[in-house]
Design a protein around this nucleic acid. Structure first.
Lengths: 124, 124
DNA sequence: TTGCTCCTCACGTCACGTGAGGTGGC
DNA sequence: TTGCTCCTCACGTCACGTGAGGTGGC
């Protein structure tokens, strides 16, 4: 692993605005194991790890499962190495789903506005 | 209850785009009991019930708990009857939280766009 | 009588939250 | 040596999903 500059879990949590528990859970399910461990067993994350975490963080609000996100990380990694048709197909499907779910998020903002309006009416 | 025109759970689910299980669960926890039951035990919802369901549906994407939404329904009902200072205060707090969380949703849309961009880069 | 719709348990799932009890490292 | 940060269980939580087995009503 890249030992040039590693971070403990606390710093990663602060930088990514994620809980320690989430980061540990993501390791438990194989989504995002840290690149290394210290002598005493502390998780050590590299900048590359943080990049992956931030990718997952952006994907999360779309409601994909941890398993789906794990697959995306794998496919992105595979495509960085060589052209993998299967990975390409899966990623294209994820991109399409992203568009569908993005639209859903936008509708949720609209619903939030409607809710806000209704509450304001009651308070008026 | 208003028997003028009642609906069974299936029709309500279809109209509100909610699952039967959600509607049943919302009754279980006291959030939204239907106004009545048929002889045979079928849940009977009124138009007023559906109104309440739609209010909850708009509020849901903001991530409030079922308990918080139950309180909101109670407070809205209370204010419809008479002026209740405590209900007013709680609703104002919900309105403020709504603004905070709406902003969070908007940021999530932005994150979705960033994610979409990153995936597109890998596919290019 | 036949379907389709509904009913009540009740266990399962997903993504963590929340202590409890213990140790690492500047 | 003192704190602060980290560790591993392991049970709890929230909002349902998902059958299983049975009944209602046009």
């Amino acid at each position: 692993m890249d030992v040039a500059r590693t971070m403990q879990i606390g710093e990663v949590a602060a930088r990514t605005e994620l809980s320690l528990r989430s980061l540990r859970h993501w390791e438990e399910v194989g989504l995002l194991p840290p690149s290394g461990r210290s002598e005493g067993g502390f998780r050590l994350y590299t900048e590359a790890d943080v990049e992956r975490i931030l990718l997952v963080r952006r994907m999360k609000p779309l409601g994909f499962s941890l398993e789906e996100m794990r697959q995306v990380l794998d496919d992105v990694t595979a495509l960085a190495v060589a052209d993998d048709p299967a990975a390409r197909t899966r990623l294209r499907r994820i991109r399409d789903e992203t568009d569908v779910r993005r639209a859903r998020l936008v509708r949720q903002v609209e619903m939030a506005d409607e809710f806000r309006g209704l509450v304001d009416d009651r308070l008026a």
